[in-house]
């Protein structure tokens, strides 16, 4: 019987849920991840644009679950399915990442240091919301995720009780029970390009949020409205090597 925590030789598996990602950032994301992680596990939430075929083109995608009907309206079930699928591949560590998120070069360089240790079981990084371009991120009252930490990496401890909150939307990307374990809040950074598109992209996302959650039950109505802010505070991104 091996120790639950290995200080070296850890297998890192990226886990990702996707839906109609073709023509956006998925290919670039999988290309980056293929250089960084050992395996990739994906759940496709009933894409209609050939996203699964794109995923299959990457050899490190070892498991791809294709849903016939979307589960996005019950996000906790989708997250749970992704988790169960990922842990079934026997990973040591999991990187929970979206198709529009990219690790900074310094983060890539130091990623193995984060996981090849036996002291803590999760790592949280700084996530920056790029806005309107790939050169600037947004920093204001409603868009300041980078000032907090986002748990993105967790050690897989076989037998541990992993649970997601049974919420329909805005479910955390990793089981919330992980946070009871010892963890590290790192200053390493991740770029979120989900809002980096043009105005019409953002308007489409705004409309989707308003449709899914008109009363702000799962999120915040004021934050939804701030998507349309004509003059947000933007800060130039300087990539760290």
């Amino acid at each position: 019987m091996q120790s639950l925590r290995k200080a070296s030789g850890n297998k890192l598996t990226a886990m990702m849920q996707v839906r109609n990602e073709r023509g956006r950032y998925l290919e670039a994301s999988l290309a980056q991840l293929s250089d960084v992680v050992d395996e990739i596990v994906i759940v496709d939430d009933a894409s209609t644009d050939g996203t699964p075929e794109l995923c299959r083109a990457f050899p490190k995608v070892v498991r791809l679950v294709e849903l016939r009907r979307p589960m996005f309206g019950e996000e906790w079930k989708l997250r749970s399915l992704l988790w169960e699928t990922a842990v079934s591949t026997d990973p040591d560590w999991l990187l929970a990442i979206d198709a529009d998120e990219f690790l900074e070069r310094r983060t890539i360089r130091r990623l193995r240091e984060l996981i090849d240790q036996d002291q803590y079981d999760w790592a949280a990084l700084r996530m920056f919301d790029f806005w309107g371009s790939l050169t600037h991120y947004r920093d204001d009252l409603w868009w300041n995720l980078h000032r907090r930490h986002t748990m993105m990496l967790v050690r897989h401890l076989p037998g541990f009780h992993y649970a997601y909150p049974k919420w329909d939307h805005h479910v955390p990307r990793l089981p919330f029970t992980c946070s009871a374990l010892p963890g590290l809040r790192s200053e390493l950074r991740v770029k979120h390009w989900g809002w980096a598109g043009d105005t019409s992209d953002r308007l489409a996302k705004y409309n989707r949020y308003k449709e899914l959650d008109p009363d702000g039950r799962w999120g915040n109505v004021d934050q939804y409205e701030s998507i349309l802010d004509p003059a947000p505070n933007l800060v130039r991104w300087v990539e760290e090597e």
Partner: peptide, 8 residues
């Protein structure tokens, strides 16, 4: 499982 639970 019990040992794993303790070790966690």
């Amino acid at each position: 499982s019990a040992v794993q639970a303790y070790e966690a």
